[in-house]
């Protein structure tokens, strides 16, 4: 075999290996979803969704956890959206080049790498203890808001950056102030990107388990929360609780709950991707 034949062979071998590796991750994902559907799908019925938790696996439902997740979703969105987008606007449109902004930027990059469980410890000491919020929904959502803030800020900046400066120039040349330009031109033109980032960040938040456990979300909550100051549990914690039990029936329950959780996560991701595509298609500069 000549040298070039050998090279050709290696080249083709790697090509096959590359396809195999790419498919490996996806096949694992498929196995995971198949296994969960197989185990949990038959368990899902209306009772499973509306029942309160129970010690008996067959009677147990996810109602309190689902409501907890819905509450967390809304509260986190309400807190993280204005702060994150505001901070993103500040860094992209106002703070550029200043030392303070540079420092903020490094800080945000660092925060994005802090493990989520550390945010749990922060929330436990500050929101639960110092602010005396206890293991409440509010303490949980404040903690998650801080956790996703770096993601919201970074994606907001990306979206704002994508707006061509010619649009901003045109606006200020007409006598618009900086904020008028941002409010009337830059933000509307980047809304798709901003929303995509926010939705993805929140979908990450509702999949989070560890920080909420640390903050003191409970494994067992008898009733669905009715105010931000109530104790709560969420879907991932409910799943964790069921996974930790030895009986097979609880494993079935957790698989069923995972289906619901994945449905919510994938739906949010789908909406985010849809928004992004729509936004990219609509605006061609």
């Amino acid at each position: 075999m000549t040298n070039s034949q050998k090279n050709k062979l290696i080249d083709n071998a790697f090509k096959i290996f590359g396809v195999a590796c790419t498919l490996f991750g996806l096949i694992i994902l498929a196995i995971l979803i198949y296994d969960i559907l197989k185990t949990g799908l038959t368990r899902i019925d209306w009772d499973f969704i509306t029942n309160l938790p129970s010690r008996r696996a067959q009677k147990a439902g996810i109602y309190t956890a689902l409501m907890g997740t819905v509450w967390i979703l809304f509260l986190t969105a309400i807190i993280a959206f204005p702060i994150g987008v505001g901070a993103g606007i500040y860094l992209e449109e106002y703070g550029k080049k200043s030392k303070w902004a540079n420092f903020l930027e490094i800080n945000i990059a660092n925060l994005a790498g802090v493990p989520s469980i550390i945010y749990g410890l922060l929330g436990l000491e500050i929101f639960v203890r110092a602010f005396n919020l206890g293991g409440s929904l509010l303490a949980g959502s404040l903690t998650l808001s801080l956790l996703i803030l770096p993601i919201v800020i970074v994606s907001t900046r990306e979206a704002l950056k994508a707006v061509p400066s010619s649009i901003k120039d045109a606006s200020v040349a007409l006598g618009a102030s900086k904020w008028q330009t941002i409010w009337n031109q830059t933000l509307p033109a980047s809304v798709g990107g901003v929303l995509t980032g926010v939705i993805l960040a929140i979908s990450r938040a509702i999949g989070e388990t560890a920080p909420l456990i640390v903050v003191g979300a409970l494994a067992y909550v008898p009733f669905a929360p009715s105010s931000p100051m109530d104790e709560f549990t969420v879907m991932p914690i409910q799943i964790f609780n069921w996974v930790s039990r030895p009986q097979h029936e609880f494993a079935v329950n957790s698989a069923a709950a995972i289906i619901i959780l994945l449905l919510i996560t994938f739906m949010m991701n789908g909406v985010a991707v849809y928004y992004r595509n729509k936004w990219q298609k609509k605006i061609k500069w």
């Binding site: 969960i36 999949g207 959780l261 994945l262 996560t265 991701n269």
Partner: peptide, 9 residues
Amino acid sequence: AVPTVVYGF
């Protein structure tokens, strides 16, 4: 994007 608790399971 899959929640980590799912991977744990």
